Computed example of a mutant assay.
Amino acid sequence: MIEEKNIGESPSAYHLIEAQLNTAESALMEKLMAKGFRFVDPQIIARNLNLQKANAILGGDVQLASALGKKVGAELILVGKAMATATEVEAFGTKIRSQQATVTVRAIRSETGEILCTATEQGKFSHIDDIAGGIKAIQQACDRISETLVKQILDRWQADVTAGNILILQVLNVKDYSQLNRFKASLKSYVRGILSVIQRDFSDNIATLEIEMKGDAEDLAQKLSSISMEDFPFQVTEVNEGGVTIRLNASIPQSNPGIESPDTLQ
């Protein structure tokens, strides 16, 4: 999603063409697809996005962008702005029109809302028609920014593989905050490979934990399914690309060893 403005000025006219041109989006998609990236069909996005949500996302609402990405099945959401303007200079008695563009893009990880990387690039073109020149300048900036984005995204993914992958563990049926703290403390002891556990949210008996570990969601699900946490019986209920969902069972009351049951009394 790129908010785009292409503005041309002259002494006798002022032109404003809004984002319907989609020059930046089209240029970025073309460059990134050539690098092997795949994109969700724009019609699918349009069915899940109204003007209010689009403006909020373009305005910096990372959580809404994350929710949209998860809903349409995108691993990353690209959000940014593209602005093209024009100036006029005189050289050797000749007036020359020049168009400049600045494009800024953020890559947001859908599963966590994390900003994976940010890039800004500029383009410049000279054309007698400000709008046509602005399009060329935006395309030039997008050529440059696509190279920057690809490098940053791949570098980050490689770092995630080396240092540990970020996964979301959603825990359902959590009794209270005390139980959640004890569960978090136990995870690293029971599940090998977990590097860190960070609580992101807890409300309505549902906890969202950010897990850093070496492996993917399938690895986490298999490890969770193969262990038995004595104080926290649970079942794995869902596995997706970005994480795992489990449901805690109600704790089984333990008998008090200091009191004999009626059946053992003589």
Rank of each mutant, 00 (worst) to 15 (best):
D143P: 02
G193F: 09
Q158M: 08
I153Y: 02
A46Q: 06
L58H: 06
R144K: 15
A141H: 00
A86T: 12
S228G: 08
S251I: 03
A217F: 10
G258L: 13
S126C: 04
K124Q: 12
K5G: 10
L167G: 06
R247A: 12
L265D: 12
K70R: 12
S251W: 09
V239D: 07
Q170L: 05
G8S: 13
S228K: 13
I194C: 07
E30C: 01
T94V: 15
A34Q: 07
L187Q: 04
I2A: 00
A34P: 04
L49A: 06
E212C: 02
I45A: 06
A132P: 02
T104V: 10
N22S: 13
I44T: 14
V79N: 07
I211V: 15
D160V: 00
L248V: 04
Q152L: 08
I246P: 08
A119M: 11
I138A: 00
K5F: 09
E147H: 08
Q122S: 10
I198H: 13
A27I: 01
S98N: 11
R47Y: 02
N205Y: 15
L21K: 10
D41G: 04
N256D: 15
G59K: 09
Q199R: 13
L224Q: 06
G93A: 08
K188L: 10
H127A: 06
E75D: 15
P262Y: 00
V236M: 05
L167F: 06
A107S: 05
G36A: 03
E212M: 11
S146C: 02
T162V: 11
T87C: 00
K71R: 10
Y14H: 15
L32A: 03
N6I: 13
E241H: 09
L58E: 07
A24R: 04
